[in-house]
Simulated scan of single mutants.
Amino acid sequence: MSSSLGFRAYASGPDAYAGTMNLSVGRSGDRSRPVRTESAGVLRLMKPLHLDDSGQVAYFVVNPGGAYFSEACRMDVEVLPGASLLLSSQGATRIYRTPRGPAVQEAAFTVGEGARLEYVPDQLIAYRDADYRQVTTITMAADAQVFVEEIVTPGWDPDGTPFTYTGMLLRLEVRHADGGLVCADNVRIVPGDIGAAIDGIGYLEGSSHMGNVLILGQHVDEAYVDAVRELVDASGLARAGVTSGARHGIPWVMVRALASSTDALSALVLSVNEHDRSVTTGQRRLNLRRY
C-alpha cells in the first residue's frame, strides 16, 4: 500500500494488523451519535461521551497492552455530514523496543460536509531502540472543520542518555473530498542515524520535545492566523512557528513548536484549541483529564 506521494505504508491487508478500529458518527437531532463502532486486537474504544451541551460526541481509544512493539494498527474514522467528533486516547502512546521491525499506526479520517473533527491524542513516547511509523490521511469536505495535534517526547532511559530511540516518521496528508491534495507534512526524527547531534542546530535545536497543531476550515482567515501567532508569541516558546495557506478552497494553519517538556507544548495546544472553539462552536477549553 502506498500514498500518491510515494510514501510506502508498512502494513498490507487486514491480517497484517495487530489492532483495528472502525468508527462512524452521524448527527441525530441535536446530538452526534455513533453509527458504527468496531474494534479488534490491541485497540479498544471506550463508551461514547457527551462532555458538554454542544452535541459533540467524544471517544477515547485504548490500547489494553499499554504500548506498541513491532506491530501495526489501523484506525478508520468517518464523521458524517453535520456531525462533530472529539477523538482522544486514554493515555500516552508508548513505543518500546521494536526488534522485528517498526511499530506502525495508520489512521484514515473522512470528514463530511459541515462536519467537525477534533483529534487530540495524548503524547507519543518513544523509548530505547524504538522505531515507529505513523501515517495519517484526512479527506474532508470544503466546509468541514478539522483540528489535529501531536506531541512527541523521548522516553526515559535507565542510563540517562537522551534520544535512544532508533527513529520516528510521522506523515500527515490532507485531501479535499474530490481528491485534490490540500497539504502534507512529513517529519523524520532519526537519532539512530544522527546520534547525539539530534538536539543540535538544524535538528531539534537543543530541545527534546516537538508539538504540531494543524487546523483546517473556512474559519481560518487572516484574522484567525494572526490570533494564532499571538498565542504562539505569548507561549514563551522560543522555537515555535506558524505557517498558513489554502488549496482546493480549504484554508489551513499549522503550528510547530519545540520545547523541553510535554507540559509546555500541551499548554500551547490547549490555548490554540480554545481559540479555535471560541471562533467555531463556542465550546469551552478542553479538560480531558477529568474523564
Score class of each variant (00 low, 15 high):
G245L: 00
Y203W: 09
L204W: 00
S260G: 04
A227Q: 12
A257N: 02
A227T: 10
N212E: 01
A234R: 15
L231Y: 08
D221C: 15
L204H: 00
A264H: 12
D221Y: 12
G236Q: 14
S266D: 08
V220A: 15
P251G: 05
G245V: 01
A259D: 09
A238P: 07
A246G: 10
R247T: 03
E222I: 02
V213C: 09
V225R: 13
V220Y: 14
S244I: 00
H219G: 13
A246H: 06
Q218E: 14
D233Y: 11
A264K: 13
P251R: 05
S235N: 13
G249C: 04
E230A: 12
V228W: 09
R229A: 00
A259C: 09
S235F: 14
L216G: 07
S207T: 10
A238R: 13
S208C: 00
R256N: 10
A257H: 04
L265A: 05
A240D: 04
L216D: 07
L214R: 04
R247W: 02
D233R: 04
G236M: 14
G211E: 03
N212Y: 01
V213Y: 07
G206V: 03
S208T: 06
A264E: 15
V255M: 03
W252M: 11
A267L: 09
Y203F: 12
Y203M: 06
G241S: 11
L237N: 03
T262V: 14
R229C: 02
T243D: 04
G245C: 01
H219N: 12
G211D: 05
T243F: 00
G241I: 05
S261H: 06
S235E: 14
G211P: 04
G249V: 06
N212F: 02
A240M: 01
G236D: 12
T262S: 11
G249M: 02
L237H: 09
A246R: 11
M210W: 01
R229V: 00
L258R: 05
A240G: 00
H248A: 12
I215K: 06
I215S: 09
L258N: 07
R247P: 02
D221T: 15
H219E: 15
V255D: 07
G241M: 04
H209Y: 04
H219R: 13
S235P: 11
V213T: 10
S266L: 10
V213E: 08
I215Q: 10
E205F: 12
D226V: 14
L258W: 08
G249D: 06
M210A: 04
A227K: 09
H209A: 05
A223H: 15
W252V: 07
L258G: 08
G217K: 06
V253T: 10
V253G: 02
V220P: 15
I250H: 00
